[in-house]
Design a protein around this nucleic acid. Structure first.
Length: 285
DNA sequence: AAATCATCCAACCGCTCGGTA
DNA sequence: CTACCGAGCGGTTGGATGATT
């Protein structure tokens, strides 16, 4: 399908915005709103395309924009969310009030990535391709796969002992072979899991979401008390964007998305959830 | 002081998706 | 069902600025 250009480039200004243009745009949006970006510049008397106006408004002129440097807390949040969401900047931005996707993207590339590398902390990058839960682009492409967090295939699910031992995690079976750590709450460090040791052959009928919570060893209150988390409750989680780029809650994977958020990211994911995730992931391949 | 290099970030580009005629 | 439009997304670019030589 041949698409018309997003804007008529002839005669339209590009490049940095002047204070006068900013003022015109602000006044117009405050007065009439921005129901139609394409028509807006003409109606407002701006020699810009609608796309440019929208970008300027969303990334710079919006009244709720928080300017200035990112706090340590914000940076940590970005790092954590990036582990979970990958490069879905708008989804990350939706968790950081006052910050734009563009801003977060810039901070990530200019500061955080550098910092992680300096710390020898390439974890985020290593995880990146493996943790794009509900990545619509992936799920919609012909050769889409929901990546396995541990890299293990469904055929590799091995029997898991009720209390996984942390003593034998160093065995290497394949490229996905990793090590793991557990704590007394049933949470597991997903960083390096030897999948062949940890994942049992799953009887599909065994698992239901309720049973998973019950069997996870994780205090159920963690899933019920939203006040502990700076995120919406799973039941109210909405896609960040109408075009499907947001953390879409679809079939079972929405549950996993929310679970990852609630459990503090993949590093604190209960092993039972992880194996169930991988099981579902393989089902969708 | 001038030249060069590195960094930052606003803005642009191409693409996808939902809505609609 | 198809074609198209408009909005929004992530990736990339390029000018401005600061640091270094």
């Amino acid at each position: 399908m041949v698409r018309a250009p997003c804007c008529e480039k002839m005669g339209l200004k590009r490049g940095p915005w002047t204070p006068e243009e900013d003022q015109i745009l602000i006044s117009y949006v405050q007065k009439y709103g921005h129901s139609n970006w394409r028509a807006l510049p003409k109606q407002a008397g701006l020699q810009r395309c609608g796309k440019s106006c929208r970008l300027r408004w969303v990334n710079y002129l919006r009244p709720d924009i928080k300017r200035g440097n990112f706090s340590e807390e914000e940076e940590e949040t970005i790092i954590k969310l990036h582990e979970i969401l990958g490069n879905r900047w708008s989804a990350i931005a939706s968790r950081l009030p006052g910050r734009t996707d563009n801003e977060i993207k810039n901070v990530w590339h200019t500061h955080l990535l550098k910092r992680l590398k300096q710390n020898g902390e390439s974890k985020s990058q290593q995880h990146m391709p493996d943790c794009h839960l509900n990545d619509n682009k992936l799920s919609q492409s012909a050769n889409s796969t929901i990546p396995s967090l541990s890299g293990c295939k469904s055929t590799e699910y091995a029997q898991m002992s009720p209390q996984p031992s942390s003593s034998d995690h160093s065995s290497v079976t394949d490229t996905s072979a990793t090590t793991s750590e557990t704590n007394n709450t049933g949470l597991i460090k997903v960083e390096n899991i030897d999948s062949s040791e940890i994942y049992p052959v799953i009887d599909e009928d065994f698992w239901s979401e309720a049973e998973m919570v019950e069997n996870s060893g994780m205090p159920t209150s963690n899933f019920l008390d939203d006040s502990q988390f700076p995120f919406p409750s799973p039941d109210t989680m909405e896609p960040a964007g109408c075009n499907g780029y947001g953390p879409k809650v679809d079939d079972n994977m929405g549950f996993w998305y929310n679970l990852f958020i609630k459990s503090g990211g993949i590093e604190e994911l209960p092993v039972q959830y992880l194996q169930r995730y991988n099981y579902l992931a393989d089902e969708r391949i």
